[in-house]
Design a protein around this nucleic acid. Structure first.
Lengths: 225, 225
DNA sequence: GAAAAAACGGGGGAAACACCCCATGGCTCA
DNA sequence: TGAGCCATGGGGTGTTTCCCCCGTTTTTTC
């Protein structure tokens, strides 16, 4: 019996315990290590050489993306399954870029996680449905004729980023137009391009995106008493 | 034997499954319900009347703070234990203010969560060590002289906060209306009140405010390209 | 040197939002 | 017992957004 060896990296003790319970009951999966931050994950990955690494994104000291990058660099055949609370484009795209083989959400049931682990181990990829949907929208099949094609997430143009920032700061199209000395119609066009590229269709979503990617700052100060 | 009945509210399936496994093994705890967002938590709390409610803070549609406020209002003897990934002062203070009896971090082991549940059920409070430490620092007698009342910004009502969260999540007035089973006109009214109280006059601004005050989560971080 | 983006501009229309007006009933607080 | 806030609902109006359609010019990329 060849059980799939798994390294578990998540800073929440409860999540690790839960996984150990849930996955431990699966006959074909064996958890051979646990890490509670990214640095530990890298160290254990290189030491234990697990078949699959289940890696949380939000971890202290070293986040899941960086940890993945470092593991892949030192251990290129590592198969890493990202676990995240959110399906933000930026994270998914980044995770794929640094070499993760799959992306599952924490809303996923452990059964599906088991399936994902099996699939990853078998050399395939696995993405939660909502992640896959976003991926499809994100990639306008940009293929180079060299056969090899790097599915590259469409990046925002500098003008679009500029407009995004102003939108997130609360400006209207008309105000942005006068700010940039272009017509309001053009601003609308940029806004539409933004929404198409990001698959976000409302101002609130654009604002959240702008904040999460650092296009604007949004630091806290008061705490509603 | 009287087992402690517990309602579990967390939007992550994996966390709920983990808890069910870990707590289910405890002889004196019985999980009688699960909710995957705040509104479900409120409904189930009133229907099931559990001894203890284990409530996550970051949940869609209605966050843990608002859910706690609503449960306590309709069911004042409810004993609620907050579960959170972060120990931010603002969250802890707010949780206590709305009537939570304890605050544990997701880094906590399930054994400690069991202890917390027992303690809460016994009429005491429970705070994770790092939370308790912050609490001590946070509490240098906030009381000003009676009547002092310096220009206090009007606080948002519970309903307004609820609407704010949904706006920041990207819902339209119409969608919020059907979500809350009220008329779109009333949602508009709440939105207008929000804007008047906060002196913010656009959706982007409301979204930034919601994020900066923790009404919704916005996964920030990550640089690298 | 052709193809693809980027940046620019516009028409028109449906939906959503923002800001006025109005009202009822409940609750709390001084 | 009012004053004040909260939650609910409605009418109306103008603005803004969002989504189609249609162009041009310049720059970048293959």
């Amino acid at each position: 019996m060849n059980r799939i060896t798994v390294l578990l990296a998540d800073d929440h003790t409860i999540v690790r315990e839960g996984f150990r319970q849930m996955l431990g009951m699966e006959a074909n999966i064996e958890i051979i290590g646990e890490a509670k931050d990214g640095r530990e994950a890298v160290a254990l990955a290189l030491k234990l050489r697990p078949d699959v690494i289940l890696m949380d994104l939000a971890m202290p000291h070293l986040n899941g993306i960086e940890a993945t990058r470092q593991v892949i660099k030192a251990f290129p055949t590592a198969r890493i399954l990202i676990l995240s609370a959110h399906s933000d484009d930026a994270y998914v795209a980044e995770a794929i870029k640094v070499g993760a083989k799959g992306f599952v959400l924490k809303q996923t049931s452990s059964q599906d996680v088991c399936r994902a682990i099996g699939q990853i181990h078998a050399g395939q990829t696995f993405f939660s449905p909502s992640v896959a949907k976003r991926l499809a929208l994100l990639n306008p099949t940009r293929r180079t004729r060299e056969g090899a094609m790097v599915a590259k997430a469409r990046e925002l143009s500098s003008r679009e980023t500029e407009v995004l920032q102003l939108i997130a700061e609360g400006s209207t199209n008309k105000h942005i137009a006068s700010e940039l000395s272009i017509s309001a119609k053009t601003v609308e066009k940029h806004r539409a391009s933004l929404m198409a590229k990001l698959a976000i269709h409302d101002t609130a979503g654009l604002t959240r995106y702008a904040i999460s990617t650092g296009v604007i700052e949004n630091r806290v100060q008061n705490t509603t008493s």
